[in-house]
Simulated scan of single mutants.
Amino acid sequence: MQRYFFHLQNRSHTPKDAAALLSRARQLAGSHVVVRDSRVSGKYIEFDTSIPDSMDAGDVAGALAAISPVASIEHIVDRHMEKDQAIRHAIELFNEEKYWGTHEALEMVWKATPAGEERNLINGIILVAAALVHSQKDEQEICRSILRRAKKKLEKAAGTYHGIDMDRMAGLVATMLNTGRIERFTI
């Protein structure tokens, strides 16, 4: 089985539609394809899938296009990237509201970083991305719970980290927790 993320253009769906979209994608993709999750951002409907090696991702994309036009197909494979490249990639993914991909891109950086403030900061960013994944699935209480963990990791974060304004990120996390309104933002 090969893992793929299918990103469909989102023209009108909200995270409240995630469960219904997941059910529809499973029907359309067929019994040999595993559609494990759906996430709805302002830009995309994302389906996390596994496809048998004998199947073509384009055929699955064609089936999912009945929901909305396909914006991109991402083959998920382990890729080694240098730290700076992985962080740049994670920033791009975050700004495209591809939060699960952000989490995965930063996880290898986090694992390779020795214990200390930088590791906590990276973990905080990962937790913010993970929280927003749950928001995309309309799991707001889980999102807030993870944001509380992120806030603790970001407490000592200040200035910029690879171009990310950490003061702004920490402030936005605090605001979301104080207001209860989950907002997407760019970094």
Rank of each mutant, 00 (worst) to 15 (best):
L28G: 03
L28Y: 09
A29L: 07
G30W: 02
S31P: 06
H32M: 12
V34R: 13
V34C: 11
V35I: 15
S38L: 06
S38A: 15
R39Q: 12
V40T: 12
S41V: 07
S41A: 10
G42H: 14
G42C: 08
G42L: 04
K43Q: 14
K43D: 10
K43T: 02
K43L: 08
K43N: 15
Y44W: 12
Y44P: 11
Y44M: 05
I45N: 03
I45H: 04
E46V: 13
F47V: 08
F47P: 05
D48F: 13
D48K: 02
D48I: 06
D48A: 11
T49A: 01
T49P: 12
S50M: 03
S50R: 02
S50L: 03
I51S: 01
I51T: 07
I51M: 09
D53L: 10
D53E: 09
S54H: 06
M55V: 09
D56C: 04
D56I: 09
D56E: 14
A57H: 05
G58L: 09
G58V: 06
G58F: 11
G58Y: 06
D59A: 13
D59G: 10
D59V: 13
D59I: 05
V60C: 03
V60Q: 01
V60H: 00
A63Y: 08
A63D: 02
A63H: 09
L64D: 01
L64S: 00
L64C: 03
A65F: 03
A65W: 02
A65L: 07
A66C: 00
S68F: 10
S68A: 15
V70C: 13
V70D: 13
V70M: 10
S72Q: 03
S72N: 06
I73H: 08
E74P: 02
E74M: 08
E74F: 13
E74S: 06
E74K: 07
H75V: 03
H75P: 01
H75Q: 08
I76E: 05
I76F: 04
I76W: 09
V77G: 06
V77H: 07
V77K: 04
V77S: 02
D78S: 10
R79C: 04
R79T: 14
R79M: 08
R79K: 13
R79Y: 11
R79A: 11
H80P: 00
H80E: 11
M81I: 05
E82M: 14
K83I: 11
K83Y: 08
D84T: 04
D84E: 15
D84I: 04
D84F: 07
D84N: 15
Q85R: 13
Q85V: 09
Q85I: 10
A86N: 01
A86C: 05
A86R: 00
A86G: 01
I87A: 15
I87F: 05
I87C: 12
R88V: 01
R88N: 11
H89R: 15
H89K: 03
H89I: 06
H89C: 09
H89Y: 08
A90F: 00
A90E: 05
A90R: 02
A90S: 07
I91T: 00
I91Y: 02
I91D: 11
I91H: 04
I91N: 09
E92M: 08
E92I: 08
E92K: 05
E92D: 13
L93I: 07
F94M: 13
F94K: 04
F94V: 09
F94N: 09
F94Y: 15
N95G: 02
N95D: 06
E96G: 12
E96I: 06
E96M: 11
